[in-house]
Simulated assay, not measured.
Amino acid sequence: QDLNIPVNLSKPIEQRRSVIISKMRGSGKVSASMLKNVAQAYERGSIEVTVQPDAYKVTIHFRDTLGIPPNLSDLKSAIEEIKPAHMTVDYALRYLTIAEVEGMTFDEIAATTQDRLLGGGA
Rank of each mutant, 00 (worst) to 15 (best):
P69M: 09
T65Q: 01
V51C: 05
S73N: 12
V49W: 05
G45W: 10
Y56D: 13
Q52M: 12
A41K: 08
L66N: 09
R44W: 10
P53W: 13
R44E: 13
V49R: 01
F62N: 03
A55G: 07
K57H: 11
F62G: 01
K57I: 00
A41C: 06
A55S: 10
L66P: 02
Q40W: 03
D64R: 07
A55P: 05
F62H: 00
I60A: 04
K57V: 00
D64Q: 07
I47M: 06
F62R: 00
P53C: 09
A39C: 03
S46E: 13
D64L: 04
T65F: 01
I47Y: 01
Q40C: 09
V49Q: 03
I47D: 06
L66I: 10
Q52L: 09
T59S: 05
T59N: 05
Q52E: 15
T59E: 07
P70M: 11
H61E: 07
L66H: 09
R63G: 02
V49G: 01
V51M: 11
S73V: 13
I60S: 00
D54K: 15
T50Q: 09
G45V: 04
V51W: 08
V58Q: 02
Y42E: 11
V49T: 04
A55W: 08
F62C: 00
V49P: 04
S46M: 08
L66E: 12
E43Y: 12
A55H: 08
Q40V: 04
I47E: 07
T50G: 03
P69H: 08
T50K: 10
T59K: 00
T59I: 04
E43F: 08
I60E: 04
Y56V: 11
G45C: 07
G67I: 11
Q52G: 05
D54R: 12
T59V: 10
A39M: 03
R63E: 06
G45H: 06
D54M: 12
P69S: 06
I47V: 11
K57W: 00
S73P: 05
N37T: 14
V58L: 03
P70E: 15
S73T: 15
T65L: 02
Y56L: 15
G45N: 06
V38T: 07
V49S: 02
I47K: 01
A41Y: 08
P69Q: 08
G45F: 13
F62M: 05
R44P: 02
I68A: 06
D64Y: 06
N71F: 11
S46V: 07
Y42M: 09
E48N: 09
D54Q: 15
A41Q: 03
E48T: 07
T50D: 10
Q40A: 13
Q40D: 14
